[in-house]
Nucleic acid binder design. Structure first.
Length: 222
DNA sequence: ACCCAGGGTCATA
DNA sequence: TATGACCATGGG
């Protein structure tokens, strides 16, 4: 696993798509809410739900923590899984309040933040890392389905590797830089949304140069 | 009509 | 530990 290769891939994506300035939100707490709402859900629908929450003036830990579940579920209806996510948002909001609010959480160590978030119902590894990186600006490398697919195609991982294995490997290979991880994950997502989903894409996209497998699979694509 | 989207939990073997 | 069912709306 070469740092050079990972940085070269990053540079190619950055040159092509430009800085993404993630996460799109007005506050750290809104990042947390968005992270839960976007679970297996298109971001457009998350924006609709966030707008509805804003209209109802409930985008605050103490308010959300006490909001009746049916009201909350109705507000986030556009994201799908609204009953499930209503409970998750409430659990997360109650946890934030119990820890003394967002300001108190900003003093926590990165590992404690991660561990604490993972203890909240409905917050798994990816959602926790989205929050740690994009709400608190800590250097954790987020692994999502796009990351798995891209790095898999580039020959940097194999199918079925556990989340922690991948995260540890990429964090070890790259400098521990929150700004780098921020842009890298955002660029992977943007790239995935604007490129082919079904083909071994590195043979037909801007990352062709960096893809060792492109040599062996060359000619198989149209 | 189909597939999938910036996942996670829970029950089962 | 490893699958599978389930959650559910909206866009292409």
């Amino acid at each position: 696993m070469t740092r050079r290769l990972l940085l070269s891939i990053f540079q190619t994506l950055l040159d092509h798509y430009g800085p993404q300035h993630w996460w799109p939100a007005d506050s750290a707490f809104e990042v947390m809410i968005g992270a839960v709402l976007t679970q297996n859900t298109a971001w457009l629908n998350v924006e609709r739900a966030l707008t509805r929450l804003r209209e109802r003036a409930v985008l605050e830990p103490s308010v959300l923590a006490a909001l009746p579940l049916d009201i909350l579920a109705e507000a986030i209806r556009p994201t799908g899984y609204f009953n499930v996510k209503a409970r998750r948002l409430q659990a997360l909001s109650q946890w934030v309040c119990a820890q003394g609010g967002m300001a108190a959480l900003k003093d926590w160590q990165t590992a404690d933040l991660r561990h604490g978030l993972l203890g909240v119902h409905g917050v798994g590894p990816e959602t926790a890392d989205d929050i740690v990186l994009y709400a608190f600006g800590r250097p954790v490398f987020v692994i999502d389905a796009y990351t798995r697919r891209l790095f898999g195609r580039l020959g940097l991982s194999v199918d079925g590797e556990p989340y922690e294995t991948l995260r540890a490997r990429y964090e070890q290979a790259l400098p521990r830089d929150a700004c780098l991880y921020n842009e890298y994950h955002a660029l992977i997502v943007v790239h995935a949304k604007t490129t082919c989903r079904t083909k071994p894409a590195c043979t037909c996209c801007i990352l062709r140069k960096q893809c060792p497998a492109a040599v062996t699979t060359e000619g198989m694509e149209d």
